[in-house]
Design a protein around this nucleic acid. Structure first.
Lengths: 241, 241
DNA sequence: CGATGAATTGACCGATGTCAAGTGGCGTGG
DNA sequence: CCACGCCACTTGACATCGGTCAATTCATCG
């Protein structure tokens, strides 16, 4: 299955990835040729928090979790990645360590470039550097947004936002509902939203009674998108007119 | 006072700024020559949240606040900048708007480069691009850290961290104490720490009784750094031994 | 059919936000 | 130079969201 020449089939994923957009086919081919493919079992980390940031990864098969453990032992689920998404831009810089661990969900496969090599590509094709910068800027804005949400919004609202974000990434339409297509425990959702599994459980239960979601063991299915959207982005308070 | 040739005196600030480090003197001079100096009164914004991200600024005189207003009307004090620090890396990319406003504290002066111009410098000197990327990576990690702090730490702890961070940036030694050298109201501290002015007031009062700080109207002075540090980074819980 | 781990549910409570009232210091204008 | 008013700050009373913990229940898999 993992024939050395079959990387070809990942060319479209590579070409559409935000780090590599707006480059010629020729450069895309060159990048693909330089990539190392590797498959990970669900019990081996793709990268380990604290290790020197060695490589950039483009996920091409499977899904993975980005997890960060804080000094005081709390675990944060930073985000999920799905095929076509990348991680490890940091590796093009020297002297950094990975700020988080990447854990496969099931088996998964990545294309990998050592950061040093990617840095050489950037010198030859500045576009890649700008693309990387753009990604970091966007990620920065997203992080700042999350910070503000944590600061100013209730758990309910943030949980709705989490579910909708996940729907964008891993939602699979099932009739008029949307199944979140990955094993998703209450605890995962809690770490992703910034709360506890108990609170997630209570809120999901309540939404289930209202018909907004259906949920089971490590499974969530969205039934009423508009309702969830209005919880996630409530109408602002009445103006003072 | 603002003689056109006097930009020379800002050369050291420019050369030490993280965006421009590791470049030759010649490039530094070239950059300085391309810069536009401008002075702002305390009632005009240096940049306005939501405007197209036009320019990169290097602050050379005075101090400024980076403020962000959320959709639901809350205000967040993202950080302060002091001479030598920069803002607006985002402007080298096209299509972005400023995610926050920059407000002078008193009069201040910046060197300004249109983002498009800086982008041309990056194409000629890739080092600048890597430097910019490094800055964004570091900022990203700081943001993620703040998120985690908000999630897992008490207000007391976060407030101590805020004060210590400010001491690094604007601390002026006064005998054995450190004065935070800018007008700093309880509300500023609250917006910076992620709490309310009431809670800040109570905590500062309590610290004042213990002799850790002295504070007055828009003024805070740190008297016992070790005490504050141990509040900011408490010893971890006893191991289960 | 039993074991394992996920999920539910209830009781409790504590940190911190909200609001209202009052105090005090600084600057301005008379 | 004094008085007034503004604004930062203080302080108290109170409410509440959501975290903690313990006890169950449930579902899935071997």
């Amino acid at each position: 299955m993992a024939h050395p020449m079959t990387n070809e089939k990942y060319l479209p994923l590579l070409a559409q990835n935000p780090v590599f957009v707006d480059l010629s086919d020729q450069v895309h081919a060159e990048l693909l040729a330089a990539a190392v493919r590797r498959t990970y079992a669900s019990d081996e980390l793709i990268v380990r928090q604290g290790d020197p940031a060695y490589a950039f990864h483009l996920l091409v098969e499977g899904k993975a979790k980005l997890l960060q453990v804080t000094a005081n032992g709390h675990q944060v689920l930073v985000r999920y990645i799905v095929p076509g998404q990348q991680t490890g831009v940091i590796s093009v810089l020297s002297g950094f360590t990975y700020p988080l661990s990447i854990q496969p969900i099931g088996t998964c496969t990545t294309l990998m470039w050592p950061g040093e090599l990617l840095a050489q590509f950037i010198e030859r094709y500045p576009r890649i550097g700008f693309n990387a910068l753009r990604i970091m800027v966007i990620r920065n804005q997203q992080r700042q947004q999350r910070y503000q949400e944590l600061l100013t919004e209730r758990v309910e609202q943030r949980l709705a936002q989490s579910l909708l974000r996940l729907a964008e990434q891993v939602g699979r339409p099932e009739g008029d509902r949307i199944l979140l297509d990955l094993p998703l425990s209450r605890e995962d959702l809690a770490e992703y939203t910034g709360t506890t599994l108990f609170t997630v459980s209570r809120i999901l239960r309540q939404w289930e009674e209202q018909g907004f979601v259906q949920s089971g063991r490590e499974r969530v299915c969205l039934c009423n998108l508009p309702a969830l959207q209005s919880i996630a982005n409530p109408a602002p308070d009445l103006p003072i007119s």
